[in-house]
Design a protein around this nucleic acid. Structure first.
Lengths: 211, 211
DNA sequence: GGACAGAGTCAACGTTCGCTCACCTCGTTC
DNA sequence: GAACGAGGTGAGCGAACGTTGACTCTGTCC
C-alpha cells in the first residue's frame, strides 16, 4: 500500500474520481469526459493510463474491493462465541462496511447488467468472503451439535443476502415507511431470530440422526 | 371488422419490445433506435405514442408491475396455517414470480440509479405487497401468541429482502459454486429456520411479558 | 548533450444519441 | 367530398459519446 505512492499520483486520482462518478451515475451514465474534467486532465490523458472505459471501470471495481480485507477482519472472530455471535459479527461487518463506504454500496447495486464482469468481481470480492466464513462456522457448529442439520451453503448465502439487501435498500425503506431504522435495531431484531432457528434446543440430543 | 384491428396495438407492441430491451441492456444501454427497429417502426413513430425515453421507461415499469396482482394472490392465504405456512407462501410466490417473469427480475436489479423513479415504482408495486401481507400476518399471530415478540416490520422487510436477493442472485450463485440450487430446495431449507426463530416454544406461555 | 520515454494537451475522427420536422396516408365525421 | 386527426415515414438536427493521432514538455539515462 505504501509502496504504491509514486511521485505522480495521477492514476490514483483518476481512479478516485472515476469511482465516485461511476457509483453516482452508473457505467453508461458516466462519460470519460466527466471523469477527465473532475480529475483536472484531458480525456487523452486518461487513455495514457487506461486502455479504455471498460478497463477503467474494471480497475475501479477491483481497487474498491481491495480497499477492504473482509476475510481478514472476519478471521479474528473464527470459532468465537455461539452461532448467534457469529451471525452478529457478519451482519455488523456488512452494515458497517456499507456505512463506511457508500460508494461501494452504490457500485454493488449499480453494476447489475452494465459490465457483467464488474458485477462478478464485486460478488467474488465482497460477498464471497462473508459466505465462506459463515459456511465454515456453521458447518463446524453443526458437527458439534450446536446447530441443527441444515444446508450450510444455502443458509449462509441467504443470511448474507438478507443483510446485503438490507444494506442496499435501507434508503428505500425510509422513503416509503417514513421512519428511518438504524442498522443496530435491524441486527438486534433479526440475528436472534435466525440464530434461534439454527440452534438445537437444549432438550434435543446433539446427534439425533446420522450424517 | 373487429378481427383485423390487431395492428392498432402498436403501443402495446412497442411497450413489449421496450420492456425486453430495457431489461436486457438497462436504461442507458437501450437506444430508442433499437426499440424502434425491434418494433418494426421508425423512431418518430415511438414519439407519437410516448413523450420521450424517460416516460417510455416509466410506462414499461408500470405496465410490468400491473401484470401481476401480488396482493390479490396473497389475500387468498390470509390467516391460513401456521407462521411457517405464511412464510412459505410468500417465498414461493416471489420465487415463482421470478421464474415466470425473468424480465421483471432484470428490471428490478437494473433500475438501480438510472431513473430513480422507476426503482421506486418497482419497489412499491412488487416489494411492498409482500411486506404488507407479512406484517399483517405476523402482527396478528404475535398477538395470538403464536409468534414471539419481535418487530413485525423489520422482520417482514428482511425476510422479503432475503427471498428477493435469492431470486435476483440465483444466477450468480451457480457461476461461483458450480452446482445449481433450485428454488424449492432453498425454500425447504430456509423457511423452517426462519419460522422456528419466530415461533414460541410449546413449553413457553404465549404471553410471557406485557405488550 | 543527445536520445528517449512518460505524461500531458489540442483537435478532431466517426458514430450514436434523443429528438424534431415536414410530409404522407388513411378512416372517420360533418 | 372536404376537413381532420391519428399514426406512420424519411431525413436530419445538434449534442455527446469513446477514441485516436500529432504534438509538446520534462525529466532521466548513457
Amino acid at each position: 500500500m505504501a509502496a504504491e505512492v509514486r511521485h505522480t499520483n495521477r492514476r490514483g486520482e483518476i481512479l478516485d474520481h472515476a469511482s465516485r462518478l461511476f457509483s453516482a451515475h452508473g457505467y453508461d451514465g458516466t462519460a470519460i469526459r466527466l471523469i477527465a474534467r473532475a480529475s483536472g486532465v484531458t480525456e487523452a490523458a486518461i487513455y495514457r493510463h487506461f486502455d479504455g472505459k471498460a478497463q477503467l471501470y474494471d480497475e475501479v471495481i477491483r481497487a474498491k474491493a481491495r480497499e477492504h480485507d473482509i476475510a481478514g477482519d472476519l478471521a479474528a472472530s473464527r470459532g468465537c462465541g455461539d452461532v448467534e455471535d457469529v451471525l452478529r459479527v457478519v451482519a455488523n461487518h456488512v452494515l458497517s462496511l456499507a456505512h463506511r463506504d457508500p460508494e461501494l454500496v452504490r457500485l454493488m447495486s449499480n453494476s447489475s447488467l452494465e459490465n457483467d464482469q464488474g458485477r462478478a468481481t464485486i460478488f467474488r470480492e465482497v460477498r464471497s468472503p462473508y459466505i465462506e466464513f459463515l459456511v465454515e462456522e456453521i458447518t463446524r457448529r453443526m458437527a458439534a451439535g450446536e446447530v441443527r442439520r441444515i444446508d450450510p451453503v444455502i443458509t449462509s448465502r441467504c443470511f448474507v443476502g438478507m443483510v446485503m439487501d438490507c444494506a442496499l435498500n435501507a434508503g428505500m425503506w425510509s422513503r416509503f415507511a417514513g421512519a428511518e431504522v438504524d442498522a443496530q435495531t435491524v441486527v438486534c431484531n433479526n440475528v436472534p431470530i435466525f440464530a434461534r432457528g439454527l440452534t438445537n434446543d437444549g432438550a434435543t440430543a446433539p446427534f439425533n440422526d446420522g450424517v
